[in-house]
Write a protein that binds this DNA or RNA. Structure first.
Length: 271
DNA sequence: CAACGGACCTGCCTGC
DNA sequence: TGCAGGCAGGTCCGTT
């Protein structure tokens, strides 16, 4: 479900409602996520507030006084703030209850997500320490991509989805950015020039930024932390349009597995 | 180091 | 209506 824009939308939706409010109770109904949910989670966070919510790649960092809750939503996860009285649903694995009865619930049917506790500086955690630049940061640009791509024979789509290259570019937005930049997703990363990488970096920034503005992409039932769907799906030009016609050149949009992931591209104008 | 395949799960859709 | 098979927005880890 969630790529970077959906995670960021969740962060923005939740922060004003939960930051600074003490957690009254924590309930773990299903600890078997990607890694086991800490058995002493309740002891770690009960009676303490979440001080702030940050994001790094697709991880949410819920900052507490003595450490950080690291949350990843995997393929099917969502965080939802329910008003008092709303009942728990199937696949709501962890609940954080606040004063007044509102309840933050981690919902994740496929359980590819994670909820971890990190002592100390979370950015030094092994899961985060080696991530590449944030795509919406100034440190990310075409020069960075070009320099990192030297000698790489893997498809450029795999290259930009590698979190060490740039953090948080998933299958939908990699597909869209390559479409916008006019680059064929299967082209070897090391065989693309600096100018084209400049365009690709711009496309990545543009597509992620626009998607965040639209509240993310709702495919199945994604909603942000406060229940609103995202509208970026309406602006997808390649993803989900296989068999259709390219808006730019009239060519055929074709679907194919590239680097183990389903990809859509225009057979005529992506080179 | 780079590249690749497998692993972890449930739900939903298609076709027989 | 039932069932098998394929597919899905992620990413870590082990092997080559």
């Amino acid at each position: 479900m969630p790529e970077l824009p959906e995670v960021e939308t969740t962060r923005r939706g939740l922060a004003p409602h939960i930051c600074g409010r003490p957690i009254l109770a924590v309930r773990v109904h299903e600890p078997r996520l990607r890694w086991p949910v800490p058995s002493d989670l309740a002891r770690l966070v009960t009676a303490r507030p979440i001080l702030g919510i940050d994001r790094r790649a697709k991880y949410l960092l819920l900052r507490c006084a003595e450490g950080t809750l690291l949350v990843h939503l995997g393929m099917s996860g969502s965080l939802r703030l329910d008003p008092a009285g709303a009942t728990r649903r199937k696949h709501d694995h962890v609940e954080f209850e606040f004063a007044g009865g509102a309840c933050l619930r981690l919902h994740d049917p496929r359980r590819f997500g994670a909820l971890l506790w990190v002592d100390g500086e979370p950015l030094q955690h092994p899961l985060l320490a080696r991530l590449g630049p944030e795509p919406l940061d100034g440190a990310f640009d075409g020069a960075w991509l070009y320099q990192r791509s030297h000698g790489r024979r893997a498809p450029v789509k795999a290259f930009i989805m590698d979190a060490r290259t740039v953090a948080g570019v998933g299958n939908i937005y990699a597909t869209e950015a390559l479409y916008i930049a006019g680059i064929h997703p299967a082209r070897a990363a090391g065989r693309i020039g600096a100018r084209r990488y400049g365009r690709l970096a711009d496309s990545i920034r543009q597509v992620l930024g626009d998607a965040i503005e639209q509240g993310g992409t709702t495919l199945r039932d994604y909603v942000n932390g406060t229940g609103a769907p995202g509208y970026f799906r309406l602006q997808l030009r390649a993803y989900g349009h296989s068999g259709g016609v390219c808006e730019r050149c009239g060519g055929e949009l074709r679907q194919r597995i590239i680097a183990q992931r389903s990809s859509v591209y225009c057979v005529r104008c992506q080179r």
